[in-house]
């Protein structure tokens, strides 16, 4: 958020949404364990103050995996202290924040190689080997 000098443009009005959100994550994790069903939470759809967002991030902490995706701009995917809970931050091609999500799954959907892309890659490799072998 931009600074505006002396006038506090954004008042940190607590929404009280952090606790319910953590409970939602708890339910989602239970569901993942029992049925394997993943959940995605859009943080943009939920009012959170700056402080609360920081509180949430502090609570989630950092886990073992951190991945960087380069597709339509950078996306940062961070596993949290709770295995299976991923914090995903999408940025656009101008490095501006475009969205933030929490995904509760064994692996974020975006990290899997996609069949269409695999198909494309295979086609490219075949083409390259046939037409212009590099070695």
């Amino acid at each position: 958020m931009a600074e505006s000098g002396v006038i506090p443009i954004a008042l940190d009005t607590a929404t009280g949404n952090v606790r319910p959100l953590l409970h939602e994550i708890r339910h989602a994790l239970t569901r993942l364990l029992n049925t394997g069903e993943p959940t995605v939470i859009d943080l943009g759809a939920l009012p959170l103050s700056e402080t609360e967002l920081e509180q949430l991030q502090a609570q989630l902490g950092k886990g073992e995996v951190r991945a960087e995706l380069h597709a339509l701009g950078v996306s940062l995917i961070q596993e949290t202290r709770y295995s299976g809970v991923w914090l995903i931050r999408h940025m656009n091609e101008s490095q501006e924040s475009a969205g933030m999500f929490i995904e509760i799954s064994k692996m974020p959907e975006l990290l899997y190689a996609q069949m269409e892309d695999i198909q494309d890659g295979l086609g490219r490799l075949e083409h390259e080997l046939n037409e212009q072998p590099p070695f």
Binding site: D42, H90, Q114, E116, D117
Partner: peptide, 16 residues
Amino acid sequence: GMSRRSFLKFCSLLAS
């Protein structure tokens, strides 16, 4: 030249 991953990212931002 848009990858499937990019497309999925686009779709989730669009939904948001």
